[in-house]
């Protein structure tokens, strides 16, 4: 109760209601992440899928070695003590432990793969928004037209097409090594941006397209539907009655209202993807966090699995936070 009271008194000193809202949400986000750490810990250490000490000891382990490891890492101690050790090192040093498989620190392993995952997610995000915005606006202004129907059909197709299948089709068609129409680099050609920007860009074109396709259709539909709704509202009628240009009516009145829920949704989706895109990274053999997670699962590398889950969770929690704040900023009617 003491800490809650302290937090409350800190909160009450903040003047701006928006800032107070942000601080309060940040505190909740911290709590949420600790909960996620607890759950992953519970799942991987306490459910007897494998003995951590055995895994850590490797293939040619003697019983003495296993026992030594058990003691050294505190694996013989009660659950709550183990959890305390783990969470203390996570919180104070952001220490996620050592990978069993490679015997490397998980934190560094993930951080070194993060740029690749961010490249994939951010590029796909920009691409799908660049497609969805104009297409959505077009379909909203011309309902039931041919373009409207084409978008609906394409959305259905790309949403139904599994990412890995779409990825393989793309590789089969366009990859420079195995493609029928070899145009651009396919799987395994990823180069970091800092090394060679041109090669980086070319290697990511196909993954971006594959990842963006489904989202672009979905977002075009959502933007179109939202805009169609707002264009039928009374305040858009008022805007027209003022005698401003139709272009201004659409952009400054219609889109302003239609896009605010989309922006928050986009923040969530982007946050989700930033934590690693397992399928796309696997199909295109991109050394990102998603790929690392797949390897970790295949090798039963518990600290690595925990680390990737925690990273994903942090991105999602942050995305929710950003989405909530954006929503409050974009819509003055939202009370916080």
């Amino acid at each position: 109760m003491g800490s809650a009271g302290l937090f409350g008194s800190v909160l009450s000193r903040i003047r701006s209601p928006l800032l107070r809202y942000v601080v309060r949400r940040l505190a909740w986000s911290g709590l949420l992440i600790i909960l996620v750490i607890f759950l992953t810990f519970l799942v991987f250490y306490q459910l007897p899928s494998a003995d951590p000490a055995q895994l850590r000891a490797g293939r040619l382990a003697t019983p003495e070695l296993v026992a030594e490891i058990r003691e050294k890492f505190g694996l013989d101690r009660p659950f709550y003590e183990q959890f305390w050790i783990y969470i203390r090192s996570v919180v104070t040093d952001f220490d996620l432990g050592y990978s069993y498989y490679k015997n490397l620190p998980v934190r560094e392993e993930i951080l070194s793969r993060l740029p690749a995952s961010i490249s994939v997610a951010l590029g796909a995000f920009i691409l799908w928004m660049a497609i969805a915005l104009p297409v959505g606006i077009l379909t909203a202004l011309r309902p039931r037209s041919r373009s409207d129907r084409a978008v609906t059909g394409a959305t259905l197709f790309f949403l139904s097409a599994p990412t890995y299948w779409l990825g393989l089709v793309m590789l089969f068609l366009f990859a420079s090594d195995i493609g029928r129409f070899p145009l651009i680099g396919g799987a395994g050609t990823y180069v970091p941006l800092s090394v060679d920007p041109k090669a980086w860009f070319e290697s990511l074109i196909l993954p971006w397209i594959v990842l963006a396709c489904g989202f672009a259709g979905l977002y075009a539909r959502m933007i179109g539907e939202n805009l169609r709704e707002t264009m039928a509202t009374d305040y858009v009628r008022t805007a027209r009655a003022k005698g401003i240009s139709e272009r201004r009516v659409v952009i400054r009145h219609g889109l302003r209202a239609a896009l605010s829920p989309i922006v928050t949704l986009a923040a969530l989706d982007l946050g989700f993807l930033l934590g690693g895109t397992i399928l796309v990274e696997t199909v295109f053999n991109i050394p990102g966090v998603g790929r690392y997670a797949v390897d970790a699962i295949q090798n039963a590398d518990l600290p690595a699995i925990q680390g990737t889950v925690l990273f994903g969770a942090i991105f999602i929690v942050l995305a929710i936070l950003v989405a909530d704040i954006l929503y409050a900023v974009l819509d003055p009617r939202v009370r916080y």
Binding site: T238, K242, G243
Partner: peptide, 30 residues
Amino acid sequence: VRGRRIAMVFQDPLSSLHPMRRVGWQVSEA
């Protein structure tokens, strides 16, 4: 002609004003 020679006031002012724009912005725009 709209707004300049013929202007209109509607029934429900809450739904007829843009909810996310300040009223000054909306009057100035006219």
